[in-house]
Amino acid sequence: MTTGVHVKRDAWTGSLLPGLIILLAILALVSLGLGEITMGPARLWAGVTGADREASLVIWQIRLPRVLTAVLTGAALSTGGLVMQAYFRNSLASPDLLGVSSGAAAGAVLTISLGWAALSLWVLPVAAVAGAALATFAVLALARRGASSERLLLAGVALNALLGAVTSYVISTGELFARSTQLLFWLFGGLEDRTWLHVWAALPIVVALALVWPLGRPMDLLSLGEREAQSLGVGVRGLRRRMLVLATVLAATATAVAGVVGFVGLVVPHALRLTAGPEHRRLVPLCVVGGAAFVLACDLAGRLAGGLRLGVVTALVGGPFFLWLLRKRA
């Protein structure tokens, strides 16, 4: 009989999820403890319980919102990427590469410049979802499902360039003092100065993740072919619509609270698929926890490196990984 590659078995992939949860918990604790005021476990505890007023302020008002925003953003981007890859049946699909994140950023920037964002807390996230939805429709029009990787990625390149130009233009016509930081935020993402408002604004992510959860099995079938899936009993039209809405909401909400953070939706599902196999029932929870841990680790690394922006760190990690993938596929 032939020997060769076998699909990875359960032996140690079963311990992957608990392992990632522990990693996430450690990263969260380190993120809460490290910073301008570094706290040991004792002071951290005193801060959490409120016994130490200064530590309590730092943890509850500054670091915890940042950690939670990172966790939600990471979970949303990686799971959004996973859903898009199953939808397009292409493992190179992800919200940032296809321009969906750029669409969300353009939508957000437009409402800020028009002054609408000041009207209500919900205007900006809703505008981000609208921008992301428009970008999604554009990608669908340019590259059909099951389209070749080239076609899909070229569509993404074109959309990213176009939407990035919109964002840059809107910001460059604004007031000078606000430009540089805002431009950086919407083009490279970041978790500086995140507050509880951002955490609340990111809550649709929790709902969307809960709704992705039960789609694991039908996504398995869909990812191997639409007609095939339907012939095996999957209601393909409804499933596709749900997947598209959920992926868009995930990517858009993450972008609304953290700016455009690249490569998470590509790197995390891919790395997990390589270690745990392609079954979505297993990949969905892994992507939720793994994506959260990845973004938290990147944010921590950026802070330790003297304030590198989150999007810069994820690009530094994800860029080479993406090139490696392209090389491997060629």
Partner: peptide
């Protein structure tokens, strides 16, 4: 419908590396 009629496509392009057994078991969905 899936319990009444089965269809085998002319060729299948598989993007993802599901194990053979898993793909066959999809017939029981």
């Amino acid at each position: 419908r899936a319990r009444q009629v089965a269809w085998v496509p002319q060729e299948a392009r598989f993007e993802f590396g599901f194990p053979v057994r898993g793909v066959v078991q999809q017939g029981r969905y």
